[in-house]
Nucleic acid binder design. Sequence first.
DNA 1: AGTTTCTGCACCATCGATTGTGCAAGCGAA
DNA 2: TTCGCTTGCACAATCGATGGTGCAGAAACT
Lengths: 352, 352
Amino acid sequence: MDQRVKKKATIYDLSVLSGSSPSTVSAVLNGTWRKRRIKESTAQTILGLAELHQYTTNLQARGLRRSRSGLVGLMLPVHDNRYFSSMAQTFEGHVRSRGQCPVVVSASRDPEEERRTAETLISYSIDQLFIVGATDPDGVHEVCEPAGLRHINIDLPGAKAHSVISDNYEGARMLTKAIIRRFGNDDPLRPDELFLFGGRNDHASRERIAAFHATKKALLGADPEDGVQSSGYSPDITLRAFEAFYQRHGKLPRALFINSSINMEGLLRFMAGRPAEMFSELVVGCYDYDPFGSFLPFPVIMVRQNVEAMITKAFELIDNPTTTPQTFLIAPELVQPRSALKGPLDTLKDIA
Amino acid sequence: MDQRVKKKATIYDLSVLSGSSPSTVSAVLNGTWRKRRIKESTAQTILGLAELHQYTTNLQARGLRRSRSGLVGLMLPVHDNRYFSSMAQTFEGHVRSRGQCPVVVSASRDPEEERRTAETLISYSIDQLFIVGATDPDGVHEVCEPAGLRHINIDLPGAKAHSVISDNYEGARMLTKAIIRRFGNDDPLRPDELFLFGGRNDHASRERIAAFHATKKALLGADPEDGVQSSGYSPDITLRAFEAFYQRHGKLPRALFINSSINMEGLLRFMAGRPAEMFSELVVGCYDYDPFGSFLPFPVIMVRQNVEAMITKAFELIDNPTTTPQTFLIAPELVQPRSALKGPLDTLKDIA
DNA sequence: AGTTTCTGCACCATCGATTGTGCAAGCGAA
DNA sequence: TTCGCTTGCACAATCGATGGTGCAGAAACT
């Protein structure tokens, strides 16, 4: 054999070398050999040869035959965000510990892309799909269902498959309350001094906005209609929302409820180039946790969604396929300003 | 057929339905039919049937036959970090625009895990592998090489395959200089007031530390030996390093060079629970960019590695396989405090 | 010795798509 | 009419692993 690109050893090669049949080799290598009553010594011989020739199973062939692949998919809206990246990190740990191979892809919150991505993954016979923050979870379901692919929604719920999501209402209630309480009694917050930025017409935003309204009303007695500035999940649109607000009022509100860390980046863009003092009195609540975000020069109260619990619950549900789709709420956690919480990375072994 | 889990249509099904042979169906569906002189009308019939029955290619079967998969792998140390997650985001865009399917996995900076992960990916016949920040790039190479898998190192170089990395020396030089210059002439920084935290024995750390030493020496005239506190890539170890330092000196240095955003999180942990005033005079340089990190309550000068350029260069190299392995340096960019830069997410279309 | 029961393994179809090759029918030219 | 070329497609081997089935030889039993 040429040293370059020597073909990988197959069970047929080992079959010839060992004098056993391919099926015997296969059984030995995939661990079913006791069930097939292969002699211990035969097995050892084959395992030895496999080691020697660096045999590794061609997983495409196995996948083709078994019509599953050992791959478990995670579909994210985007990678570049601490909420979703911690989701990926946590997911990886779980999948790895089950001896499967995690595959993480993103679909940009584009319903079409979401479906295409699911289809591609299905073509590789992935075993399960975790759908995170999909814009159109039910559209993805329509793709998974006929293929018999087990799937589950996380973060944003769908009607046709189980969903595990944050308790957005409760989280937003806590957050709104914490923002309001942050102001003392001598100079309490007025209803028209607290605005929500971000959010669009998805389940999470709706819940959060509802809780925001209700809590404002309950604690501040009133809630002016224009208290919400929708700006989707885009830093730039959020920036423009802040600029527009600033244009109109000549200042920012005293307090902000920001719908996600992505919108929070819009606030950063607004801050860039403006004097820091402009923000020294600001109080911000952000629905999402980012360790750096927690230490900004003004108090930032954050909500950390319990990613670990969500993923755990999702695995539980996907393993015991039940009947009618349900949505499960996972309680998030309020994070006081200047908190550096442990994350999924802390599970990895530290090396100095 | 049962409505549940109806098997997916195959070329054989379409072959029966259309009255053509499987090979003809295959050719039509994979686009090689003109080359095979299939009649236009035959093709149209088959395409119609494919549409009707929602045919999708079984990519495992194709992969088995062609011994490639259309998958392109990205192996990261970890997901949960803005540097690496922006890498993933950028990578996805590139791969998608080439009509292939990106898969992102992490290997926890564990050489053994890195090799195992590469092996798994190889078993799925991925077409190319981008190895980011590997602890043992050459170990991964040893796995890829015999399999004939094209691969390239990013962020941390290897000796046996092309590498695309940040110009760490130059970046660290700029950063060190910027930190020092940050102090006015009336109260200039002394050599024993600037410390480096983080880093371990990898190429990037060594370069940065060398530049740190050299620049300190050049600009401050001296460089005490104990100016570097190695603490790997772990927030917790970094936290302990800060605590130990604080224990010994009763205060932090006036200025810090922090080797990565992960170490920066160690600083956050140190800050948590301590009064903000303790850090009001601090000046920090961080080798990595995080938008939130840029707005901390003290000046944080950051270095943004040019992820887009690195990925672009990597694709260029992996497409034109040349001879002897080389390392290519990509210039990073100094980011002034309170900057909110655009990132890979800004490429996505905004939806409000 | 003859029959049953294990042992230990080989045989072979199969998963779905790809691709080199072969060949019949159609057509124009000689 | 016959030769030769083109058109349009079918055939069959192949990628590597899996798992149901069958069968020879040894052991156990009557």
